[in-house]
């Protein structure tokens, strides 16, 4: 099963839409609730990253009996140093984003913790692609 969602940069009102939709699908498929929670945490962080940092993005979720594969691709400023971005507590979020309780530098670490395989690729001034695979059993 494949699902596609779009994200607008800066539009926090829709952050969580894809996660919520994927959660419903996984529940219907009777996936273990602990596994669903991990997937949803990682996906939500990914959505928020696009809203907070990029201009626009696209999410593709591909679910089969063994695993869920999510690809989040954005057009945005990109990440110059991915290792640094993966460091807990490191953030480049704006003041406005931080005031809402985002941008604490926990996004990518949360994603790493909650996926089985995480791959981040990025090109400065072009955008970032995040690929996450989590096994359902």
């Amino acid at each position: 099963m494949k699902f596609t969602y779009t994200i607008e940069g800066g539009d926090f009102s829709k952050a969580g839409h894809a996660s919520s939709s994927v959660k419903k699908v996984l529940k219907q498929l009777n996936v273990n609730s602990k596994v669903i929670k991990r997937i949803v945490v990682a996906l939500y962080e990914g959505e928020v990253n696009v809203v907070a940092h990029a201009y626009r993005g696209k999410i593709e979720a591909d679910i089969n009996a063994e695993r869920i594969y999510v690809r989040i691709e954005d057009e945005g400023p990109g990440i110059p140093d991915i290792g640094l971005a993966m460091t807990a507590g490191y953030s480049t979020a704006s003041e406005k984003v931080r005031e809402m309780g985002f941008g604490a530098g926990m996004g990518l670490p949360n994603m790493k913790k909650n996926t089985d395989e995480l791959k981040v690729t990025s090109e400065v001034d072009k955008g970032t692609t995040v690929e996450m695979t989590t096994y359902l059993k």
């Binding site: 952050a15 985002f102 604490a104 996004g107």
Partner: peptide, 28 residues
């Protein structure tokens, strides 16, 4: 008051105490 902290660490069935007042709180 950090949404990622709640996302990463809160457990099902808990009450969330916060001063954050926007829609994203409900998403989390």
């Amino acid at each position: 008051d950090l949404l990622s902290d709640v996302m990463g660490n809160a457990q099902e069935g808990q009450i969330w105490i916060t001063l954050q007042n926007h829609k994203n709180v409900m998403a989390v």
